[in-house]
Design a protein around this nucleic acid. Structure first.
Length: 484
RNA sequence: GCCCCGUUCGUCCAGCGGCCUAGGACGCCUGCCUUUCACGCAGGUAACACGGGUUCAAAUCCCGUACGGGGUACCA
């Protein structure tokens, strides 16, 4: 190995240390899709480089350090298919480390005690017209520690801080813009900025991949990092935010933002992961729907976009539909299980797995979300599917055929169904014959009568699975709603 | 207000100085297939925010303007 430091042919990229990234969510009770996307990009980068992903829970707020909060993060990650190599590391268990860092900062003169109350600061700033946040009141007062006393970091009065960011290039901040920020609260607890610097250094993090909303906190961490003598900063990558219809950060009130909601709404985890990977990044060959292994192979933080990305439910649904169609029938049935139990729109005892298995192939291509299965097959397991309104029926039938023709069609079909063989082919032939004879789209009224809906799966195969009497009685019941 | 970031079809992404009369996907519209819907197939619609540079050549580089977003806490 060539160790000549002055060599003009050093190849740092190839020889550099292995990639170590971290996903560091604050436990909030659920995993936001934006966070999930950050987790995914970290994971993709780690897997692409054969690196290490560390899970770190930023629970410096002790109240959040409970098992429920932990599961609210890890279960959705599991579901999405994201695994981590180290951790979870709980910041709430590392307070001593952070406090030691605060002490060393105090000792080295990089930090000082501050006894100011927020309203006092506000009052002074109002009086002086100072707009830069904290005014440095206690900077050189040499205050002693005590109850309610906080610790602030002494920011440089000049100079600049440069952050290298794989997504945004180099970002430069002026030190003057940075106020002397609090690093230890009056109650003695360290703030996340310290925890961030200490942990990233301690864990040997090489790349910090996170949302753009954290970009402005980076120079503060960088200042702490230097003051603590940690050496070179990690490389950063600030991902574009995910936005909603209003072009603002995806908010809880306007749409479902918890990853768990997407699972509950019937999205497949592989579809969700695929879609999320496409937000802020895209493969150069334009192939969007593809296995995760390929995405891992193609992914690079340097190719991530800078502009915020709109979370498009329509496209997610389309991709989900593609993944559903790609499933084997058995696999699909397996995935459908959660929607076939108690919350299904039919009496549990009426459900028949065999009948169900027979229809699934006919409805598979019609599903965009898993629970779409309900409206496709409910008529097989209940006598009163949520029949669409008569008004709608009139509208639709008048499009396909004149409403006046319906009674004759129904009469003829009832007649034919009474005696024909009870097979899909025979039923099809019978309806077709009626249609030919009466010159009408005879299938439409039959479908409405039997399934309660204007649209649905191919009619005859599933219908043949119902008892003849059931079908006949539904036809008669519908016939009775027309004048004789 | 101040600081930071951004701006290619309605939306997501491709484009990293000539291959661009700007490509793909979703959406939307047509048609084909189909006695429903869907899938599939074949078409169509639609964008480089604006203004200055630099260059033989700019969607691609630089500057400015406009617009959008993020931050501005003893939350993370």
């Amino acid at each position: 190995m060539d160790i000549s430091a002055g060599s003009a042919h050093r190849r740092p990229a190839l020889m550099s240390t292995p990639v170590r990234v971290r996903f560091a969510p604050a436990p909030t009770g659920y995993l936001h899709v934006g966070s999930a996307r950050s987790a995914l990009f970290n994971w993709l980068y780690a897997r692409h480089h054969g690196g290490t992903l560390v899970l770190r829970i930023e629970d410096t707020n002790a109240a959040l350090a409970t098992p429920e909060f932990y599961e609210a993060i890890t279960k959705p990650l599991d579901w999405l298919g994201i695994d981590w190599d180290e951790g979870p590391i709980y910041q709430s268990e590392r307070t001593d480390l952070y406090l030691a860092a605060v002490t060393s900062l105090l000792d080295s003169g990089h930090a000082y005690y501050c006894g100011c109350k927020q309203d006092e600061i506000d009052a002074r700033n109002k009086a002086t017209g100072f707009k830069g946040g904290y005014d440095g009141h206690c900077r050189d007062l040499n205050l002693a520690d005590g109850p309610g006393v906080s610790v602030r970091f002494r920011t440089p009065d000049e100079g600049s801080i440069e952050i290298s960011d794989l997504v945004r290039g180099n970002v430069v901040f002026n030190a003057v813009e940075l106020e002397d920020f609090v690093i230890r609260r009056g109650n003695g607890s360290p703030v996340f900025l310290v925890a961030n610097a200490v942990d990233d250094a301690d864990l040997g993090i090489t790349h910090v991949v996170r949302g753009e909303d954290l970009l402005n906190t980076t120079p503060k961490v960088a200042l702490l990092w230097d003051a603590l003598g940690y050496g070179p900063l990690p490389i950063y990558a600030h991902l574009p935010l995910l936005v909603g219809e209003d072009r603002k950060k995806l908010s809880k009130r306007k749409a479902s933002v918890a990853l768990a909601d997407f699972e509950a709404d019937g999205f497949l985890p592989e579809a969700m992961a695929n879609y999320l990977a496409l937000l802020g990044w895209g493969p150069k060959d334009d192939v969007e729907v593809r296995p995760m292994e390929e995405i891992i192979a193609l992914f690079d933080l340097a190719d991530v976009n800078k502009a915020p990305a709109f979370f498009d439910m329509k496209k997610l649904e389309h991709i989900n539909g593609e993944y559903i169609r790609a499933l084997s029938v058995n696999e699909l049935i397996e995935r459908l299980q959660p929607w076939l139990g108690e919350n299904a729109p039919w009496p549990a005892e009426r459900f028949d797995p065999e009948t169900f298995a027979a229809v699934v192939p006919h409805v598979q291509e019609r599903l965009r979300r898993l629970p779409d299965i309900w409206s496709q097959v409910d008529w097989l397991f209940t006598d009163d599917p949520p029949v669409e309104t008569v008004e709608k029926e009139i509208k639709q039938i008048s499009k396909a055929m004149d409403r006046e023709e319906v009674p004759a069609v129904l009469d003829a079909v009832i007649d034919a169904f009474t005696s024909c063989d009870w097979t899909a082919d025979a039923l099809n032939d019978a309806v077709r014959e009626v249609g030919d004879r009466l010159e009408a789209k005879s299938q439409v009224p039959v479908r409405i009568a039997v399934t309660g809906r204007r649209v649905g799966p191919p009619l005859f195969e599933p219908m043949a699975l119902l008892p003849r009497e059931t079908v006949l009685s539904r036809l008669r019941a519908r016939r009775a709603t027309y004048p004789s």
